[in-house]
Nucleic acid binder design. Structure first.
Length: 302
DNA sequence: AACTCTATCAACCGCATGGCG
DNA sequence: ACGCCATGCGGTTGATAGAGT
């Protein structure tokens, strides 16, 4: 268990005139006690739990485990974000990244709503991911994360690239093991297809204002074929994308950098842009390949 | 080895909302 | 209708680890 646990004593223990609350990181002992308490009483009723703690350490009548008094919602937060059995830990996968981008483009900072579509992920985790990863890229591009330009670059560049990378990863798995890849393919398709829709000027506002998702679905392979330049099937949405892609890629250097022009040379030197250092690139929206893709498109449109 | 800087994420806080008497 | 309370939600903070110098 990755617990940054420390002693109950020290600066985390605050004692004020009005409250005698424990704050700061939870200890393993506290987690254990809380789990035991929930196993007896069930979840919820956090405030009654806090009140029964009576301002200081107390002993639960059923479990005989002492609990430290914290704010009631602190118990709920700890359970929701860390202790509940179905919580997922570890890196945000490519599929999850794509979902987050897609859902955020529609709902904005409604983290709890977005979290509903990522089983096991908490709103807090998604929020942290957005603030640390996505906003970091916006900062590097010198554009506002809420700007239309940044959102467009996500929709028309980064999300299709993520789809491509997911598909590439799936294909690799396919080669290695057909049976395993079948399962993988199904899970990815099941997870993404209902949520993937391509924006056009006609549906963008509707989609943005709608709470339902996946009203317009295009096969993943279509977007990939388009980006590989081998698209054979006519798709009006993709046609719109094609028409707009070049105009979107080219201005990215101009409207995202205060008008000075994008310095891809500097970006290339920036390891945070092209690589997250752990080799798999799963932490980043764009890997090195994506960067060269962008660079190529940028130069092509010069 | 020591120090500084940066990224990450758990936890906290204030406000909003809904349920209930 | 009103007030109180519990909980949910999103923004922010601070501790920590790891990278860089």
């Amino acid at each position: 268990m990755d617990v940054k646990a420390r002693s109950n004593s020290g600066p985390n223990m605050v004692s004020t005139e009005e409250e005698d609350l424990k704050r700061g990181p939870w200890t393993i002992e506290e987690d254990f006690k809380l789990i035991n308490y929930i196993s007896i009483h069930g979840k919820g009723r956090w405030n009654s739990l806090a009140h029964s703690a009576g301002g200081r350490e107390f002993e639960c009548a059923e479990t005989h485990y002492p609990l430290i008094y914290r704010l009631g919602r602190g118990y709920g937060l700890r359970w929701l974000n860390y202790l509940r059995p179905d919580v997922r830990r570890g890196n945000i996968t490519l599929e999850e990244q794509l979902l987050i981008l897609q859902l955020h483009s529609r709902w904005g900072n409604r983290w709890s709503k977005i979290a509903q579509y990522l089983p096991g992920r908490t709103d807090n985790e998604i929020k942290n991911y957005w603030r640390t990863r996505v906003q970091k890229h916006a900062k590097q591009l010198k554009c506002d994360v809420n700007s239309k330009e940044f959102k467009d670059s996500m929709r028309y560049l980064w999300m299709p690239r993520l789809v491509e990378r997911i598909q590439a990863a799936t294909t690799t798995t396919n080669t290695a093991s057909t049976s395993a890849a079948t399962t993988s393919n199904e899970s990815i398709e099941q997870m993404l297809l209902p949520h993937l829709s391509y924006y056009t000027p006609d549906n963008a506002s509707t989609a943005a204002s709608s709470d339902s998702i996946g009203t317009q679905v295009s096969p993943i392979s279509d977007s990939i074929d388009y980006y590989n330049g081998v698209s054979t099937n006519y798709n009006p949405n993709l046609d719109y994308l094609q028409a707009n892609l070049e105009s979107l890629i080219s201005p990215i250097g101009s409207y995202c950098n205060n008008g000075d022009g994008m310095d891809f040379g500097l970006m290339e030197l920036n390891h945070h842009w092209a690589s997250d250092g752990d080799g798999d690139g799963s932490h980043n929206l764009l890997n090195a390949e994506d960067f060269f893709f962008l660079q190529h498109q940028f130069n092509f449109n010069m």
